[in-house]
């Protein structure tokens, strides 16, 4: 059995509490009847003769019984079911990333146009109190695309703080590892300045954007000014990474999954070629800057992880941002590429 080293020349303060050699996890697996029969028998015999393990088994059982006595399984199951239903959106209505109007206003308009979404939102409303204002979003499919069917999902975050400062994100690449950096600056319009740092590293992964124009697709440089209703498409170079997740953050701090279009896990991608992502994104009316971030990784990333880390950067404000808090540790081997757009009102 492997034990940690002694930290202070005596019984290590952090040492797993298994003086007889039977670990808590083994006892737990024994209780859950997960151990092979022979091992389970050995543990049972051992526990009968070991006061420490006997006590620990009793404590584990007491925890389970205490929990069962206190918790209403039906209520908890209802809440979990509601959250699951919330994820299973009907793919019917077109939508946008972010919105110019307050969330409730746009929701009404959206519901009026899409009764099915209205029913869906009613169901979600029951769970909203438990959602802690995170504003779980809606799933949307848009059928009219540049390449094929476009699937869109808008993940809404109810505004918690006035964004007197916002974020500019940069990539730091020590020893080939991308870091995420943001920069905040207050302006009269509460919008960040256009990105001034490069959005990709030479030879590394990259994200490119194209705008659908009457004369054909047009490359959109970083900081490009676009309008509501513009349709954009992305091309990526994975540079060896096998997974990609593209999200957007708009001027209000709303984080939306784009590829995939739901809060799942990264897409498996072609790690070696420069490829176009199928489908396109139609820009909504949320005026101001919006950043598209592509996370290239070797293991699938979950939207929950990306959202949590992005929110942590957004919340920490300028001080934390200036400290160059990384989104991912070097060992996680996640590279980030991004594109900033400035959305202007439709003429």
């Amino acid at each position: 059995m492997t034990r940690p080293e002694d930290l202070h020349g005596q019984r290590p303060a952090l040492e797993p509490d298994a003086p007889c050699g039977v670990r808590l996890h083994t006892l737990r697996r024994h209780l859950f009847e997960e151990l092979p029969p022979e091992e389970s028998k050995q543990v049972r015999v051992h526990v009968e003769g070991c006061s420490v393990c006997g006590r620990r088994i009793s404590e584990l059982r007491a925890q389970a019984e205490s929990f069962a006595a206190k918790v209403d399984i039906t209520v908890e199951s209802d809440a979990i079911l509601a959250r699951l239903d919330q994820q299973a959106f009907p793919n019917q209505a077109p939508t946008h990333v972010g919105a110019r109007a307050p969330a409730h206003t746009e929701t009404r308009a959206h519901q009026a146009a899409h009764p099915q979404a209205q029913a869906e939102d009613r169901g979600r409303g029951q769970d909203r109190g438990q959602d802690r204002g995170r504003g779980r979003g809606r799933a949307i499919v848009h059928g009219n695309t540049l390449v094929g069917g476009m699937i869109r999902y808008a993940h809404r975050l109810e505004s918690r703080i006035a964004l007197a400062a916002f974020v500019v994100i940069a990539l730091l690449v020590p020893v080939g590892v991308a870091y995420f950096r943001a920069h905040s600056e207050s302006t009269a319009s509460d919008y960040p300045p256009p990105l001034v740092l490069p959005n990709r590293m030479k030879g590394g992964p990259s994200l490119e954007m194209y705008v659908d124009r009457p004369q054909g697709p047009e490359a959109a440089p970083d900081g490009v000014r676009l309008r509501e209703g513009d349709r954009v498409q992305f091309r990526y170079k994975a540079a060896g990474h096998g997974y990609l997740f593209v999200v957007s953050i708009d001027a209000r701090g709303v984080i939306s999954p784009l590829y995939p279009d739901h809060p799942g896990t990264s897409l498996a991608i072609d790690a070696t070629r420069r490829k176009i992502l199928e489908g396109s994104v139609i820009l909504d009316g949320a005026i101001g800057p919006e950043r598209f971030l592509a996370f290239f990784s070797d293991q699938p990333l979950s939207f929950a992880v990306l959202e949590a880390r992005l929110e942590s950067i957004l919340r920490q404000g300028r001080k934390a941002i200036d400290a160059e808090a990384p989104l991912f540790s070097p060992d996680e081997n996640v590279d980030v590429a991004s594109i900033l757009i400035i959305k202007e009102p439709t003429k």
Binding site: H25, R28, R29, F32, E34, A304, V305, E307, A308, R309, E311, S312, R315, Q316, A320, A325
Partner: peptide, 25 residues
């Protein structure tokens, strides 16, 4: 999963650490 409890502990730990990361300050 051969050990569902192990897997669930992993999911729970990972999720909570992400929640904590979101309020790192």
């Amino acid at each position: 999963e051969s050990s569902p409890i192990t897997w669930i502990l992993k999911i729970a730990t990972n999720h909570c650490l992400n929640v904590l990361a979101a309020r790192r300050a």
